[in-house]
Design a protein around this nucleic acid. Structure first.
Length: 507
RNA sequence: GCGGCCAUAGUCUAGUCUGGUUAUGAUCCGAGCCUUCCAAGCUCGUAACCCGGGUUCGAAUCCCGGUGGCCGCACCA
């Protein structure tokens, strides 16, 4: 446990020192837990992740939308968050220990009828059944509700809440989507935006935030299309590390590599369309730079599934800091949400299927961006060694915050002048680049290693003679010398990963 | 929210028990000299006692409250 804590401290220390993230924010006023600032490199990294997410969704024919983060109470009444997104809590009158009232009742009086009860009714039930404090056996205070949504107000007197998920705000647009997609289902949309949860006591730094960026993609789909999903063909031979719930019930913790077609045949997935969503989520995480060995797909046990979810799989990422971390949920939400909004808003949320109105189902991919952000730094971390005496980050080139650093070998004007020209050219080509002239060349390489920059271009006296520069590879610390005319093309291929640095090394 | 432990330069840290000079050291960072590819060297420099109150002639040090962190409980739909 100690080593885990130490490791997350190392990651946090490096992140703070080099400008990935700072907090809890606002630091100069002491900070509030659950809030973090992203520094310049953290923001760059987050942009890269969001771009990877965006590109992956767009390629899968999803369309991006953006909704307000604040919605009036009626929305959350309908979504179930106002009543369901609460914890009924009770406090011991003597030792002041706080309990989840429903859990405590269930514990001391199994089978008690507590589902859907109000706080007043729960208070009554506690009295009737003689439920007492679990630790000191004293009487309990009245049941209070604690809602995890942040409350605010519109104008003078309209109650409103900051969204605890982006999904609900997406569902509200259903009828607009029908028009945009010309009444043709399935319709695929996604949103990347802020969401808020008033956690009682957030811990584990960047992993549990009160304000975070959420990505949610939805497919509105007819039941018959869930079974008949042509795109499944494209991925049927892809192998995913699956940990199904029957396997977990047998005590297994190791995922099994399985072809998607086989997983479907074995009944791990009921619907090809849902299985395809699970694969899409997995491929998004691969595109964000996670290696396959550090990921697994874990199916929710029936008991941990939300009431609306018919099936749920999580993507978990292995970290040195915290072990397996839940990073993404893929849910089969059925038609729960649209039906609820139809009922509460009186707006029709259906389409005509075979002359009959039907409310479509929703398949959903949902994840916070900050978790993968932290996990990626954790996964990229490499400790100092004999050949390199700083800790460094081994980001995949495509997601590294800074892609190319440019150094004149020394600070002499005759080297700086061509170096600046090359730097400008690299920036113009669309790379995020940093020019650094401070300190010895070794020190500058070390600085870039520490923030995970995959390539460094150095301009030396040979550059002046023959127009060549050196490109230095972060992972191997090896160098190649190439003409500055082919520099941009080579850098593009290296960053994209279409060529490997080793193949350019002349031995 | 509760209990235990904790909070000193950007980062890591000594000092706190036993109150008393200019608050220790490392590293980082900046400027300069030197330097033709992996933390070189030399010179100079910036930078800290979490916040608020109390006790005291005097508080980084003792007391109270707050905020934040770690661990345990609870929570994480």
């Amino acid at each position: 446990m100690n080593s885990e804590r130490d490791f997350s401290d190392i990651i946090t220390g490096l992140a703070k020192k080099r400008g990935f993230f700072w907090g809890p924010s606002p630091e100069i006023y002491g900070g509030s837990s659950g809030f973090y600032d992203l520094g310049p490199l953290g923001k760059l990294l987050k942009n890269r992740l969001e771009n990877a997410i965006r590109t992956s969704f767009v390629r899968a024919n999803f369309w991006e939308v953006e909704c307000p983060t604040v919605s009036p109470e009626a929305v959350w009444k309908a979504s179930g968050h106002l009543d369901g997104f609460i914890d009924p809590v009770t406090k011991c009158t003597k030792c002041e220990q706080i309990y989840r009232a429903d859990n405590l009742i269930e514990e001391q009086s199994p089978g008690a009828q507590i589902a859907g009860k109000s706080v007043e009714e729960l208070t009554e039930i506690i009295k009737e059944l003689g439920i007492v404090c679990a630790s000191c056996k004293s009487p309990l205070g009245p049941v209070d509700s604690y809602n995890l949504m942040m409350k605010t107000r519109l104008g003078l007197d309209q109650d409103a809440y900051l969204r605890p998920e982006t999904a609900t705000t997406t569902y509200l647009l259903f009828r607009r989507f029908l028009t945009f997609f010309r009444d043709k289902l399935p319709m695929s949309v996604f949103q990347i935006g802020k969401a808020y949860r008033n956690e009682i006591s957030p811990r584990q730094g960047m992993l549990r935030l009160r304000e975070f960026t959420q990505t949610e993609g939805q497919i509105f789909i007819l039941e018959e299309d869930e079974q008949n999903w042509p795109q499944f063909e494209d991925i049927k031979d892809e192998e995913l590390p699956l940990l199904s719930y029957p396997a977990q019930e047998k005590g297994k913790t190791e995922p099994v590599k399985m072809k998607m077609s086989e997983a479907l045949k074995k009944g791990h997935f009921q619907k090809p369309a849902y299985a395809w969503c699970v694969f899409l989520a997995y491929s998004i995480f691969r595109n964000m730079g996670f290696s396959e060995e550090k990921m697994r797909l874990r199916q929710h046990l029936e008991t941990e599934r939300a009431h609306y979810a018919q099936d749920a799989w999580d993507i978990e990422v292995y970290t040195e800091s915290f072990g397996w971390v839940e990073c993404c949920g893929v849910h089969d939400r059925g038609n729960y949400d649209l039906t609820r909004h139809q009922e509460f808003s009186k707006e029709k949320m259906h389409v005509k299927v075979n002359q009959k109105p039907g409310v479509p189902n929703v398949l959903e991919i949902a994840f916070g961006v900050e978790r993968p952000l932290f996990c990626l730094i954790d996964n990229a971390f490499q400790p100092e060694s004999e050949e390199r005496d700083t800790d460094w980050l081994r980001f995949p080139p495509a997601v590294a915050p800074i892609q190319v650093a440019v150094f004149p070998l020394m600070g002499k004007p005759e080297l700086q002048e061509p170096a600046h020209l090359i730097f400008d050219e690299i920036v113009d080509a669309g790379f995020i680049s940093q020019y650094d002239v401070g300190g010895s060349i070794g020190k500058r390489y070390r600085r870039q290693d520490e923030v995970g920059t995959p390539f460094c271009v150095t301009i030396d006296y040979t550059t002046i003679e023959d127009g060549t520069v050196t490109v230095r590879d972060r992972n191997s610390m090896e160098q190649i010398r190439i003409s500055k005319d082919e520099l941009i093309v080579v850098l593009r291929k290296l960053v994209k990963g279409t060529i490997q640095f080793e193949s350019l090394v002349v031995r």
